[in-house]
Nucleic acid binder design. Structure first.
Lengths: 195, 195
DNA sequence: CGCGCGATTGAGTAATTTCAAATCTAGTGG
DNA sequence: CCACTAGATTTGAAATTACTCAATCGCGCG
């Protein structure tokens, strides 16, 4: 299954209007700054070492962003399913090459917005600047919580919390990847009591 | 030693103008949304359980924000010295009671801005919205790096990196607090080879 | 001089990782 | 429908990393 252009527009608009109300014209204007892309499972949206000029809003599907360290271990920074945003923020905002990989765990449809388009959009339509501000702030708060979780909770507590927070992901994502997101080995996750 | 009101204004203006240029009038207008506060070592700027309606820009001094977990252990989320911002973001942006404590490690002077004043300021002066956007984005990127560091590096590597990143803090902050920031015990930090 | 805070050291313990092997499962081609 | 394979998960045992608890040390300051 796969969304039509019209379906996609609807979904993007709903996402934005959770935070700011837009007239039809404002939405049309906003929309003109985005493009769309369809990807299959296993395809990459961003590859480390290459430019990563877009932020992505997931309309359908599931992706992950991950970092490959010097020892060859990958660490998952983020999952993104429907209604979530995903990018390599450092590469995106500073126009650098990516240090992260972003790839699809399922067939996926996304909206893309380049940093230049985003800045233009924000300059012209302050509501959208407000929207992105809210998004970024919420993201910042979430990351702070994750840091606290990594520092104060043991592996099992982190997993329990993950399950409560993202029950859907538990269904859709292989356990080994969840382990990597939580910063624990897949064996340790596997040894945990069933919830 | 202690800065005059004029010194403080200068420092705030420099901080802002690293990102956006302001006319004298724009700066005066911006400034009118801030208040100032002077604190002594050990004083609290924010206390868990109470409102935390302000974001703070440090003109002089050193603070930390920390979280007290259920086991009675404190975890340091952030240090903030001159030119840094510090708050309980969740409490600040959502007008909730604080979950963090923020207190002074040295005598300190800060600018305060309430969330309402900030939103008014941003609505009226788009440059300042842009400024806060940049700040928040940079903070987001820094937190992502810290998460990766917590997941991919062992205690000693994290400490080494901390020293390189913040040599000043190593001088000004007791080791036990640095350990708490890095998510390791003070004993473990103490056992590390001298740099 | 002695107190108090910060830092260090030692010994034992707990949590988690690593490596290796076994098991399970779903999808595929014959 | 079944055998087969690749991917995912589980299990065991040893090794590592860091923690905890307890004691000691060092030093600046009243």
């Amino acid at each position: 299954m796969h969304f039509s252009a019209q379906d996609m527009e609807e979904i993007l608009r709903e996402q934005i209007e959770k935070i700011v109300k837009l007239s039809d014209e404002e939405f049309r204007f906003t929309l003109s700054h985005f493009t769309t892309k369809t990807l299959k499972k296993h395809q990459y949206l961003v590859q480390a070492g290459e430019p990563a000029p877009n932020d992505h809003f997931v309309v359908k599907g599931l992706l992950k962003s991950s970092y490959l360290d010097e020892l060859g271990k990958t660490h998952i920074l983020q999952f993104a399913m429907e209604d979530w945003w995903i990018s390599d923020p450092q590469a995106y905002h500073n126009k650098l090459n990516a240090t992260l990989n972003i790839d699809c765990l399922e067939d996926t449809q996304v909206y893309l917005i380049s940093i230049d388009n985003r800045e233009k959009l924000c300059a012209e339509l302050q509501k959208m600047e407000y929207f992105f501000m809210k998004k970024t702030t919420a993201g910042y708060i979430a990351l702070q919580k994750r840091i606290l979780s990594l520092m104060s909770q043991r592996a099992e507590e982190r997993f329990t919390q993950f399950v409560q927070l993202y029950p859907t992901l538990l269904q859709r994502v292989p356990k080994a990847l969840i382990a990597s997101y939580l910063g624990i080995s897949r064996e340790t996750l596997s040894r945990m009591p069933v919830v």
